[in-house]
Amino acid sequence: MLSDEDFKAVFGMTRSAFANLPLWKQQNLKKEKGLF
């Protein structure tokens, strides 16, 4: 599990902003970052 700081560094957004994205968009971002 990423820390909040690492999460923001990897995804360029906060966890709450990420959580507001549609599920497909979350999955695409995870795949792009190799976290899926």
Rank of each mutant, 00 (worst) to 15 (best):
P22H: 02
Q26T: 01
P22S: 04
A9Y: 07
K33F: 11
D6S: 08
L29W: 04
R15A: 10
K31N: 11
K8V: 14
L2N: 06
F18E: 00
K30Y: 15
L23I: 11
G34F: 09
F11E: 01
M1V: 13
N28Y: 15
T14M: 02
M1F: 14
L23N: 06
S16Y: 11
K25L: 14
E32V: 06
G12R: 03
L29G: 01
R15D: 03
V10Y: 10
R15S: 07
N20D: 13
E5M: 09
D6T: 07
F36P: 07
A9R: 13
A19E: 14
K33E: 04
D6M: 11
A19T: 07
D4R: 03
P22V: 01
P22E: 04
D4H: 04
S16I: 11
F11I: 04
P22G: 01
Q27L: 14
L23K: 09
S16C: 15
S16R: 11
W24I: 07
A19H: 13
A19S: 10
F7K: 01
G12L: 03
F11H: 02
P22T: 03
M1S: 12
N28D: 14
M13D: 01
A9G: 06
K8D: 07
L21G: 00
K8E: 15
L23P: 13
A9M: 12
L35E: 12
S16L: 13
G12S: 02
F18K: 00
G12K: 04
S16W: 11
Q27S: 09
N28E: 15
L35F: 15
A17D: 15
N20G: 09
G34T: 05
K33H: 14
L35G: 09
M1E: 14
G12P: 00
K8P: 04
R15Y: 08
W24H: 07
A19G: 10
W24L: 06
A17C: 07
K31C: 08
D6N: 08
F36K: 10
D6H: 09
E5V: 09
K30I: 15
P22Y: 02
F18A: 00
A19I: 09
V10F: 11
K31F: 12
T14I: 03
Q27G: 05
T14K: 02
L2E: 08
F36R: 06
S3G: 07
D4I: 03
F7D: 00
K31S: 10
M1N: 12
L21S: 02
K33Q: 09
D6R: 09
P22K: 01
F7Y: 06
N28R: 15
A17V: 08
M13P: 00
K8H: 13
D4P: 05
M1R: 09
M13R: 01
T14H: 04
F11D: 00
T14D: 12
K30Q: 14
R15E: 06
N28V: 13
K25F: 09
F36L: 13
K33P: 04
G34K: 06
Q26K: 03
W24A: 06
V10G: 01
K30W: 15
K31I: 13
K8W: 13
S16E: 15
S3F: 04
L23S: 07
G34V: 06
L21Y: 03
M1P: 13
F7H: 01
M1I: 12
L2H: 05
K31T: 11
F7T: 01
E32H: 07
R15M: 10
K31A: 14
L29D: 01
F18L: 02
A17Q: 14
N20T: 13
E5N: 07
E32S: 08
V10C: 07
D6Y: 09
N20V: 10
L29N: 01
F7P: 00
A9L: 11
K25D: 11
N28K: 15
F18P: 00
K8G: 05
K25A: 11
G12F: 02
L23V: 10
F36T: 14
W24S: 07
K30D: 04
Q27E: 15
L29K: 02
A9P: 02
K25V: 14
S3T: 12
A19F: 13
N28F: 14
A17M: 08
V10P: 00
K30V: 15
A17I: 05
F11M: 09
P22D: 04
F7S: 00
N20Q: 15
L2D: 07
K33A: 15
L21A: 01
N28G: 08
Q26W: 01
T14N: 08
K8S: 07
L35P: 08
L2K: 05
F36S: 09
K33G: 07
R15I: 10
Q27Y: 13
D4F: 03
D4A: 05
E5P: 05
L29T: 03
N20P: 01
F7W: 06
L21I: 03
T14G: 05
S16M: 12
P22N: 01
K25E: 14
F18T: 15
F7N: 00
W24E: 09
D4L: 03
K8F: 15
F11S: 01
D4N: 05
S3E: 06
T14F: 02
E5Y: 09
D6E: 14
